[in-house]
């Protein structure tokens, strides 16, 4: 349980780590759009090299590069298989009864897989280098113009922050309760799925009880400090955009324009 790196954030000190979170989110948006503008394999190669360069500049351990792909492995795998088998057109490479692997399928499968892999890695690059708190901060700023449309940016960010703040607490708590019940002979590891689900009751009931208790305490603590949220609330850590943030954004935009106009 302790091996889970939460929110994937890895503290560090690099160009990417120190980028303004608002700009980082914008860059992510631009790069995702760019990925969907790519039309050829050359484009992906270009983009891939770009991402690898940034990855090495951010001084992240390489194994996180692959580890990040693990949760989406099945989606990628199925995309590949489904395209291979069901997209028709062009030469036939292989016949398996009623199923055929055709040229267009291989092309589309590989193409989509590459797009997915790069999408995940790009996102990973941002989440690995942004602390959850500054992430929420960035989202609050970005949602600010939408307040007129009734989107409560501050409240959303506050909810995110609180949720993120309590993930480690609840993890720790569940770890403790799990151990406490294991000390009483509880078993969370063996048996079929129904048995296991039932065995979770001694873990879930105390966990919910304590989550509600904590929520209550937090609400009272915030109330006691006259929390009102939203309008006119100042920040302890003001975000400042510096030249390097504009540099980051220009690089991302440059990437998009290059892909768009070169037609790769």
């Amino acid at each position: 349980m302790q091996s889970i790196t939460l929110g994937h954030y890895l503290p560090g000190d690099s160009f990417l780590h120190n980028l303004d979170p608002r700009i980082k989110l914008l860059c992510l948006l631009v790069l995702i759009v760019t990925l969907f503008l790519v039309r050829t394999f050359w484009g992906f190669m270009f983009f891939g090299v770009f991402i690898i360069l940034i990855f090495s500049a951010s001084k992240l351990p390489w194994r996180y590069f692959l580890r990040g792909l693990r949760p989406v492995f099945f989606i990628i795998f199925f995309t590949l298989i489904l395209h291979f088998l069901f997209t028709d057109g062009g030469r036939v490479y292989l016949r398996l009864g009623p199923l055929t692997v055709e040229e267009a399928g291989v092309f589309m499968g590989t193409f989509m897989t590459l797009r997915l892999v790069l999408l995940v890695i790009t996102t990973l690059l941002i989440t690995l280098t942004t602390s959850p708190i500054s992430f929420a901060d960035g989202i609050e700023y970005i949602l600010r113009p939408f307040r007129r449309l009734g989107i409560p940016g501050h409240e959303i960010a506050m909810m995110m922050t609180i949720a993120l703040r309590f993930i480690p607490t609840l993890m720790e708590e569940s770890d403790k309760i799990r151990k406490a019940q294991m000390a009483r002979g509880a078993d969370f590891e063996t048996g079929n799925i129904f048995r296991r689900a039932r065995n979770l009751v001694p873990l879930l009931v105390p966990l919910f009880v304590s989550a509600f208790r904590r929520a209550d305490e937090l609400a009272i603590a915030m109330e006691a400090r006259c929390y009102r949220g939203g309008e006119n609330r100042t920040k302890m850590r003001e975000l400042h955009t510096r030249p390097r943030d504009y540099l980051g954004l220009s690089v991302s935009l440059g990437m998009m324009l290059a892909i768009l106009f070169s037609g790769v």
């Binding site: 406490a180 009483r184 002979g185 509880a186 001694p202 304590s210």
Partner: peptide, 25 residues
Amino acid sequence: LLFQYPEHQLFEETVYKDVAFGPRN
């Protein structure tokens, strides 16, 4: 082993069932 604040580990409907959890296992 009894952890700190062991009352946080109680989960059953009755005291009997909760105390019986360990021996039942």
